[in-house]
Simulated scan of single mutants.
Amino acid sequence: MSDMLLNNLCEVFNSKLVNRRDKPIITCLEFIREYLMKRVCNVMKVIKKCTGPLTPTGERLLQENISSASQYTARCNGVSKYQVKGSWHDQHVMDMAQMTCSCRKWELTGMPYKHGIASINEMADSGEKVGELCTYVHKVYWIETSKSMYSFVVDPIKGRSMWHKSDCPTTLTPPPHHKQLGRLKKKKDVDC
């Protein structure tokens, strides 16, 4: 569930590896292990500082949507659907029983969007019990989910000189080299 078009976690990870890809495999794997160990530790420090039920990112997104929802009005159809109108004459249909909207933002992000928040506000004004707004947020934005995701730590290991020597009699050799097909690329001479 994300409204991002890119997988940012993979992008960040790849950007960390860009200067290490040409290193030997053991050196590259050691860098990845140390990076992950540091990353998990940093995230756990942030989680310990959180006081609310949502992660800092979840709280920020929810507050942005709450401020945007003030520009919308919702009208109930008598059951569980709401017609939500904005100041720019945009109009959407909210189904609170299914927690879906015609804009599909809530379904895509897992976060109640401005149309949903306007509908929840209308429900509260009508005297319905709506509970806390954070209960409408998908569990992916909850601190408890982050705690369980980062409960697994990467353990430190001994230095390379203390590693167990393999008893495997096989020696690893590089793969055989074969000449590439096609025309050879020539270096262009630059005249000064």
Rank of each mutant, 00 (worst) to 15 (best):
Q91I: 01
W142R: 15
G159P: 12
K165Q: 12
M94W: 03
S70V: 07
Q71M: 11
F152P: 13
H177T: 13
R60H: 08
I66M: 13
M96H: 09
A74N: 00
V84H: 04
L62Q: 05
E64W: 00
D95S: 04
M162F: 09
A118W: 06
A74Q: 01
V93M: 06
S161N: 04
E128F: 13
G131Y: 04
R160T: 06
G110C: 15
K105D: 08
A124K: 01
V130L: 00
S148A: 13
L133Y: 02
V79D: 06
S68E: 10
G86I: 10
G58M: 01
Y150I: 07
T109F: 06
V153C: 06
G110S: 03
Y150Q: 02
S67R: 14
Y150F: 11
C168L: 12
L172K: 14
Q63E: 07
A69G: 02
L133G: 05
S166K: 06
M99T: 11
R104F: 13
W106Q: 01
H115C: 00
K139Q: 12
T109P: 04
P169W: 02
C101T: 02
S102A: 06
M149W: 13
S87H: 10
K129Y: 09
Y136S: 00
V137T: 01
T170D: 13
V154S: 00
V153L: 02
M162I: 10
K147P: 07
R104L: 14
G159A: 13
L108Q: 15
